[in-house]
């Protein structure tokens, strides 16, 4: 029974026809859904040649949109990284009332529509909102300005870092930190020498995902930014604006920048996953170990071999 009689598939569903049809279907759908739009973006961006592309990118409004997007990311990503690490630490290392509620709350931005978040911010910081009058009296401008954009982006991306870290830190347990403390290390020393090196790949992975989302966020930002050209337009908003202006080449040029950022993110993500991040259920460093373990066992006189 080593080989199935010829013409019959060795396993259920393993027929050549089924296999070919399935692979062809997946490849075709993938090409139509994912690959084609990507190709179109770059084709359209460079349709009028490289000088036109450069001119489009160099347009003051586009340059401002790029700057604003980068600026938003520069604020939102570090803040959310610190928040994510703190939240993951608190949830996995301490017991406190409301711990479960916090775990759930962190996930909310994932499930809520970004536009709802934007509208909610409008009613918290807007003129008719909760803090509106107080903010206006103090002459602090949050909505239709950078702070609003940053806040909305932060809301949407709040879970990314924490979500990567919580399962990993849960799996690692408290032993390492307890060991470090029992050896005399301070809290900071323990964090930087013991905790951080063991979560670094997962942390970077979370940061990369967070950054991608901050730069690409449309819904929430579009509500709170007011879409003022050259002032509060981030790159995604700017793409939409150019498109509505029938400036197809400009829209695609701006879009190509965003796509490029996304591609860089994907490459970074793949590289990080090779380091063991993202497969979260086990400690990041454990991934390359089994191979090393077996060579070590082969090289060193084994303990168990002694009588």
């Amino acid at each position: 029974m080593a080989h199935a009689p010829h013409g019959r598939p060795p396993r259920v569903g393993d027929g050549a026809a089924v296999r070919r049809a399935l692979i062809a279907f997946v490849l075709a759908v993938g090409a139509i859904l994912v690959l084609a739009p990507l190709v179109v973006i770059f084709a359209q961006a460079f349709r009028l040649g490289i000088p036109a592309f450069v001119a489009n990118i160099a347009h003051p409004d586009t340059r401002h949109a790029i700057l604003l997007t980068v600026l938003t990311a520069l604020v939102a990503v570090p803040v959310n990284t610190v928040f994510g690490v703190a939240a993951a630490w608190a949830i996995t290392r301490f017991d406190f009332p409301g711990k479960r509620a916090l775990t759930v709350a962190i996930e909310i931005p994932f499930s809520i529509s970004p536009i709802v978040a934007g509208v909610a911010y409008l009613f918290v910081y807007g003129l008719q909102g909760l803090f509106g009058p107080a903010l206006q009296a103090a002459e602090i401008k949050i909505l239709f300005a950078l702070p609003g954009i940053v806040l909305a982006s932060m809301f949407v991306t709040a879970p990314f870092v924490a979500r990567e870290l919580i399962p990993l830190m849960q799996a690692q347990g408290r032993d390492l930190e307890e060991a470090a403390t029992s050896l005399g290390a301070s809290g900071w020393r323990t964090f930087f020498s013991v905790t951080l090196p063991n979560i670094r790949w997962a942390l970077l992975y979370g940061v990369v995902l967070c950054n991608a989302r901050v730069m690409g966020e449309f819904g929430a930002v579009s509500v709170v930014s007011g879409n003022i050209r050259g002032q509060t337009n981030t790159l995604p908003l700017h793409v939409e604006l150019l498109y509505h202006d029938y400036n197809t080449a400009g829209a695609f040029a701006a879009a190509s920048i965003l796509t490029l950022l996304a591609l860089v993110t994907i490459v970074a993500k793949v590289l990080l996953e090779r380091q063991g991040a993202g497969r979260v259920r086990r400690p990041a460093l454990a991934a390359p170990l089994p191979a090393a373990l077996s060579t070590a066992a082969a090289l060193s006189p084994a303990e168990g071999a002694k009588p």
Partner: peptide
Amino acid sequence: PVRERGVGFVFQHYALFPHMTVAGNIAFG
């Protein structure tokens, strides 16, 4: 607190720092 109690503790699953060498682990304290 444990940090100042001056005890040596060996954990059930050893809790060795996986990113440090054997010598690094021993030198940590």
